[in-house]
Design a protein around this nucleic acid. Sequence first.
DNA 1: CGATATACGTAGAACGGTACACGAAAGCCG
DNA 2: CGGCTTTCGTGTACCGTTCTACGTATATCG
Lengths: 346, 346
Amino acid sequence: MADDDSRKLGKSITIKTVAEDAGVSVAAVSKVLRNAYGVSDVLRAKVQASMERLSYRPRAAARAMRGQTYTLGVLLPDLHNPFFSDIMGGANTALERTQYQALFGTGLSVSNQERGVVEAMIDRQMDGLLLIAPRLPLEEMLEIGRRVPSVVLGLHIGTDDAFDTVNNDDHMGGRLAVRHLIENGYRNIAFISLDLPRPVEFDNTFQRELGYRAEMVEHGLTRYVRVIPASQTSREIQITARHLLESRQRPEAVFCWTDGVAMEVLSVARELGLDVPRDLAVVGYDNTSYCDMAQNALTSIDQSGQVLGLQAIRLLIERVKGRRDAEHFVVTPRLVARNSTSPRKA
Amino acid sequence: MADDDSRKLGKSITIKTVAEDAGVSVAAVSKVLRNAYGVSDVLRAKVQASMERLSYRPRAAARAMRGQTYTLGVLLPDLHNPFFSDIMGGANTALERTQYQALFGTGLSVSNQERGVVEAMIDRQMDGLLLIAPRLPLEEMLEIGRRVPSVVLGLHIGTDDAFDTVNNDDHMGGRLAVRHLIENGYRNIAFISLDLPRPVEFDNTFQRELGYRAEMVEHGLTRYVRVIPASQTSREIQITARHLLESRQRPEAVFCWTDGVAMEVLSVARELGLDVPRDLAVVGYDNTSYCDMAQNALTSIDQSGQVLGLQAIRLLIERVKGRRDAEHFVVTPRLVARNSTSPRKA
DNA sequence: CGATATACGTAGAACGGTACACGAAAGCCG
DNA sequence: CGGCTTTCGTGTACCGTTCTACGTATATCG
């Protein structure tokens, strides 16, 4: 009962309350809020004092009707991969000193889900969208970019002005992994990639594959090139890994498109009694925090999620503020060597 | 330029457009939208057809001004712990058939951050809030619960009607872990808990500690009771673990308040050349997906994040729809035994 | 010193829905 | 068949901001 009252009657402090308290017009307060042109220092001070005193907070919903919501939407594939945690860390850093707030939703790497989340975000008038490794058809992403300022992270699409992109150089990442393995004496190197319904050139895993292939070929290891697609689920990955490691032509090393897959490979290797790296070397991608644990000791390509997230938000805010031409940010990956790829004994 | 036009001029389809198209009043369309009382089947069909044809989508911002936003806010501590992924999985299941949409923000388990996120969500008129293991002062959480329908997940607060709670029985979880270890021949069992600025009784880690203590005492192992606080960061946890495992009185087993800590313990143990479980048994909490990997093979308490997430959303929606008295849902945890706690050889 | 530019502040119409109050029509009953 | 209830649909006053258009006071300049 008391609750009810306080929630309903408790006269919410609106811009009007502030205006009255400060003895100015509603419009003036709005101007201060948006720090728009035409406000004297005196007036600003007066208004800010009132806002402070009343602990006024503008309602995003009302703002959305005419202006901005100061909210950015982030579409994440899932909450499972700790790499996204790094990205969001960087993103939050970039947001700290701004008045924007990020809210996210997960799309589970399923087109339908992703579409739903994106639409929900557009319905809620988000000022901008950060799409992380979306699996939507290119067509749709361009459409989204045309409707609302957007940045895409994790796809190499440089052909259109509809949105900015932020990436690491996946092609180089693929090369780095292979080069490192070769330097450490491995030659029969397989690549586990993501099994996409329809592989596309701009996909980051595909770029990694290209890098892998290129480096293998350049070192005259064409005969060892082997790309194994694996789906997303833990179970499927295990089956694929087991199949690979039990086969007669077990590779000397496996390069996995992402750490999660590499961890599963380590797990299967151990179950089969294989010693890493003596019987099998493993390289992952993303250099997530688990790589560093002794039981994994997983060599991985670091693409610096922090930087990616930070740049993505920076670009997005620029776009929200009016930039129309696309920018494409690329960070250089680097390999972090650990025990899973120690030099091979002849 | 063309973009600009399409984004601004592209006459947005509003409720008015639909009303005209269907040849009814705006109010009627609104009623259909909210499936409110007083709409004939004929009218509903007509309106729905028009909405379909125009692919109309109501604007959440406008709705928020007077009605609901159909948006639920979820406050997550971070994106790093895969356990939250389970929770959100359940939450999404519960949301599937509703018209509500969940958006989340991360609070990083820091009061200031959490406060910011919660306020942002309130500013954006979220219909309800799901707070996952928040670290805000009780006072503030009650205040939040009074302002907006809320459910708290992961804190044992049953004393107030301000919000519902969803939990596993952490006390029992603590007992289960200890009992299992004792059954398998371990007696000197330490507990690594979370180092909170000020420990509170309703905290889930504290409940686990109580369960640990109770079970130890009941088995006459009072002299082995040892609770070691560790902070959140990976580095700090490693230092704590190393200190513990290198000490003269190294325990036979360690029960960790969460899997992440247990993984670090496994890592340190390996670095120190200790064999798990021969030299050290380890039990975690949450039964996250990594537990199952052979290199971890971590025994853990499963609190069924899926169920927790699902129930939390279910309760939250009930609350949004008007329930005023608190409900407290508790799930029974169960232990999943793996290699890290194999029976001890005498 | 008068004209003009500039700075400051205000009034009030949007924005796209919701939901209350109300009226008309239809159904029911004695 | 008149009065009463129920059902269905409409008109319209909001909700809390933004922002354009405009008025007024003050500074600038020839």
